[in-house]
Design a protein around this nucleic acid. Structure first.
Length: 424
RNA sequence: GGAUGGGUGGCAGAGUGGUCGAAUGCGCACGCUUGGAAAGCGUGUGUGCCGCAAGGCACCGAGGGUUCGAAUCCCUCCCCAUCCGCCA
């Protein structure tokens, strides 16, 4: 959520920054300002009347205590009450409208990020590693089927398309990757491990920005007003919703493994092959809560922590920066990490690391008490560390051998208990 | 799911219709006192909104109602505790 004061004070600046994301947002800003003006006018008038009524009520109380007639004052107070009633109704309408509009506005892109309308304008910041030379590389689905690592047909039978069931050593590899990632981030990178609920309420989804605008992307639970989380970002960031943290406790760094559930409405036919886009996938997520002055540096180290996953696994990757037009709803700056996938002959996004500034913090009233004694909004960040299904794709496709087996990166050997995946 | 008891400031805990934004205690901050400390004494100590400011207004789990006036009475909902049922 954007700061209404900022919009009020410099509406043209806000409009021009929002225009970087696309057209049509300037009129929303005007609507917000109109609702804000109306709301404040009603509120101010209401407050004056309330002060007057409080005074009258005290007089009435005093008169009654002395057994004197107070009916004239009571009449007057009643009249004031009637006007207050209509003012309040108008004020609530304006306030609701203002809030709804504010909740629908995306974050302002950071000043330093590249302009551009879509993904084609995203610059590549750096590339790591060299894609392996593989003759006639196979797709991960082919490899998985041959080695018996998962069973897409039966997964579709029990749940539908877009779900996967890992089997045997394939299931073991999935579990092992979770363990490896959590160990890395908690032991080496200083994150605190969290294991949050996978179902959350509406307020939580609103806090991180999934609601009210993107309900169609979520799986909801009938008769309960709960939603399946699309990422651990949601429960973990909201862990501190409505709190005022001591400044000395910042930054907070959390790592959490959860499954992620996404409707992926409207994405059928796009990257739907195999494990790449699923309704349910596993992910280890990194979340940070910082003071405003540190969030830029924390985004760099967060991205480095995610990159380290691929470095340790020896998987070639590149880091791109999202241009203003490609930025997610709540983010002000985002780096995507893409791993090389020989079977796709292309790059696969395995991590998206974003700084949200105070956008989420304002929605969820997440603040810290500064050394100046005042309360300030925190900054929030998160990034995948990393998505498991696509990492799995990369491991199979980069590790495939001419003999049909898959060599695993050395660092996984003690976790997995073997150096390779062979025929079942 | 059923029954009962509860949700008040950082914590504990008063308050059942008017001067209560809220006693008291603890904690915390500052000051006095002291060679230093403890004790003691004094002062202060929530959040948000409106306003250039002075200041005003709101908030006692949430929302609605009754009333001239609600922390206090009524209704609905949420949450917590305990017991029962059920269950991993």
């Amino acid at each position: 959520m954007l700061d209404i004061r900022h919009i009020r004070d410099t509406p043209d600046t806000v409009k021009s920054r929002l225009a970087l994301r696309g057209d049509g947002l300037a009129s929303v800003v005007d609507d917000v300002l109109a609702a804000d003006t109306e709301r404040r006018a009603n509120e101010t008038r209401w407050q004056h009347l309330q002060a007057e009524r409080k005074r009258l009520s005290k007089e009435i109380g005093a008169l009654r205590a002395q057994k004197q007639d107070s009916s004239a004052l009571e009449e007057e107070s009643k009249k004031i009450g009637a006007e207050m009633e209509s003012l309040q109704q108008a004020s609530v309408v304006a306030e609701t409208r203002q809030r709804d509009l504010l909740l629908s506005l995306p974050n302002l892109p950071h000043e330093e990020i590249p302009p551009g309308a879509d993904a084609s304008a995203n610059p590549v910041l750096r590339t790591w590693g060299t894609p392996p030379e593989i003759k006639d590389p196979q797709d991960h689905m082919t490899i998985g089927a041959r080695l018996g690592l998962f069973d897409p047909e039966r997964a579709a039978k029990i749940s539908g398309s877009g779900f996967m069931c890992y089997t045997g050593s394939g299931a073991r590899l999935e579990r092992v990757l979770i363990q490896f990632l959590l160990d890395l981030h908690t032991r080496d990178h200083g994150y605190t491990e969290m294991s949050p609920p996978f179902l959350v309420n509406r307020a939580t989804m609103t806090g991180t920005g999934q609601l009210p605008k993107f309900e169609e992307d979520l799986f909801g639970i009938s008769h309960s007003d709960l939603f399946l989380i699309p990422t651990a970002e949601v429960p973990v960031t909201n862990f501190h919703r409505d709190e005022i943290l001591p400044e000395a406790s910042l930054p907070l760094r959390y790592a959490a493994y959860t499954p992620c559930f996404r409707r992926e409405a409207g994405s059928t036919g796009r990257e739907t092959k195999g494990l790449i886009r699923m309704h349910q996938f596993d992910k280890v997520e990194l979340v940070k809560i910082t003071a405003p002055g540190n969030s830029a540096a924390e985004l760099e180290s967060l991205t480095a922590d995610a990159e380290r996953v691929l470095q340790l696994l020896g998987l070639p990757y590149r880091v791109i920066e999202l241009c203003a037009g490609d930025l997610g709803f709540g983010a002000c700056r985002t780096y995507d990490i893409e791993v090389w996938a020989p079977g796709q002959n292309g790059w696969l996004e395995v991590s998206s690391c974003s700084n949200f500034g105070d956008f989420q913090a304002r929605r969820m009233a997440l603040r810290y008490k500064g050394t100046d004694g005042k309360n300030h909004l925190c900054h929030t960040l998160n990034g995948s560390g990393t998505a498991l299904a696509r990492l799995y794709v990369a491991l199979l496709e980069n590790g495939q051998q001419p003999d049909g087996s898959v060599h695993l990166p050395e660092i996984l050997h003690p976790y997995f208990g073997a150096a390779r995946l062979g025929p079942a």
